[in-house]
Amino acid sequence: MTNKIRLLFLTLTCTTTMFAQLSSHKKEAVNRVEMQYLLYTPSQNNEQSPLVIFLHGGAESDTDLNVAKAHGIPKRIAEGKDFPFYVFAPLNPNKKGLWDDRTIHKMAMSLADSLPIDKKRIYLAGLSRGGDGIWRMAVNNPKTYAAMISVCAADIPMIYLKWAKNLPVWFFHGEKDTVVPVEQTKEAYNTLKKLNQNTKLTLYPNATHDSWTETYNNEAVYSWLLKQHL
Rank of each mutant, 00 (worst) to 15 (best):
T2H: 14
T2C: 14
T2D: 14
L7M: 02
L10M: 07
L10I: 09
T11S: 12
L12E: 13
T16S: 15
F19N: 08
A20L: 10
S23R: 10
S24P: 02
H25C: 15
H25Y: 15
H25N: 15
K27F: 02
K27A: 00
K27E: 00
A29C: 05
V30H: 08
V33T: 15
E34D: 11
Y37C: 03
L39F: 09
T41A: 06
P42L: 12
S43N: 13
E47S: 15
E47N: 15
I53Q: 00
G57I: 00
A59Y: 02
E60V: 12
E60Y: 02
E60K: 04
D62F: 11
D64Q: 14
K69I: 06
G72E: 11
E79K: 15
K81P: 11
F83W: 05
V87I: 14
F88S: 02
L91N: 00
L91I: 11
L98W: 11
T103K: 00
I104F: 06
P116I: 05
K120R: 14
G126P: 09
L127M: 13
S128A: 13
G130I: 14
G133K: 02
W135Y: 03
A138S: 12
V139H: 11
T144Y: 09
Y145M: 13
A147K: 01
M148L: 15
S150L: 04
S150D: 07
V151Y: 04
I156C: 11
P157K: 09
M158H: 02
M158R: 01
I159T: 15
K165G: 09
N166W: 02
F172P: 04
H173N: 03
H173K: 05
G174V: 13
K176C: 10
P181E: 08
P181A: 08
P181L: 10
Q184W: 04
T185W: 01
K186S: 06
E187R: 13
A188H: 08
Y189G: 00
L192F: 05
K200D: 08
L201C: 11
T202P: 07
T202H: 10
H209N: 11
H209M: 05
H209E: 04
W212A: 06
T215L: 03
Y216F: 15
N217L: 08
W224H: 05
L225T: 04
L225Y: 01
H229T: 10
L230Q: 14
